[in-house]
C-alpha cells in the first residue's frame, strides 16, 4: 500500500491528472480507494451491476466481451465510467492479467468526483474521442 505522498506522485505522472496542481491532486488521492487484484480476477463483470470507475496503476487488464478479448489496458488507462454515466451494467468483463493495482471511485460517488475535477473529466472526454476515432467506424 502506497503512502499518500507516493500516491500523489504516481497520479501526477498520469495523463488523466496532468492538469491538476498538487493541492487538487492531494484531494483526488484522498478520494480514491486503492485495490489489488490477483491474476484472473474480475474487476468488472459484463452485464452485472455493482460498478466503479477504475484507474490502472500497475499491471495489465484484459477487456473481454462475451468471453472474447477485445483490448489490453495498461498503466494510466481507466475503465468503468461508461456503465456509471449511462446507468447500465458494464458492457465488458475487465479481468486482471497478472497482479494488478488500481485506484477507484465507487459508482454513486463518481458524479460528485467529476463535478469537483472538471479538468479530469475533460481528459476523459478527449480519451473517449480518441477511442471513437480509433474505432474508425461510423456509429450513432
Amino acid at each position: 500500500m502506497a503512502g499518500t505522498e507516493e500516491l500523489i506522485d504516481e497520479l501526477s505522472d498520469l495523463a488523466l491528472f496532468a492538469d491538476l496542481a498538487r493541492p487538487e491532486l492531494a484531494g483526488v488521492a484522498h478520494t480514491l480507494e486503492e485495490e489489488w487484484y490477483a491474476d484472473g480476477q474480475r474487476i468488472l463483470r459484463e452485464g452485472f451491476s455493482g460498478t466503479g470507475f477504475y484507474i490502472l496503476l500497475e499491471g495489465e487488464v484484459a477487456v473481454r466481451i462475451e468471453g472474447q478479448e477485445r483490448a489490453r489496458l495498461r498503466r494510466g488507462a481507466f475503465f468503468g465510467e461508461a456503465a456509471i454515466l449511462l446507468g447500465e451494467p458494464p458492457g465488458a468483463d475487465v479481468v486482471a492479467a497478472g497482479r494488478v493495482r488500481v485506484v477507484h471511485v465507487a459508482g454513486p460517488a463518481l458524479h460528485e468526483f467529476l463535478m469537483r475535477h472538471p479538468n479530469v473529466m475533460f481528459r476523459m472526454l478527449q480519451e473517449q474521442t480518441r477511442r471513437l476515432r480509433s474505432a474508425n467506424r461510423w456509429a450513432r
Binding site: 454515466l85 449511462l86 447500465e88 473517449q128
Partner: peptide, 13 residues
C-alpha cells in the same frame, strides 16, 4: 462536459 462525456460513452457502447 459531463453530458458530452455521457453522449460519447453512449456512442462507444
Amino acid at each position: 462536459v459531463h453530458s458530452l462525456l455521457r453522449g460519447l460513452a453512449l456512442r462507444v457502447r
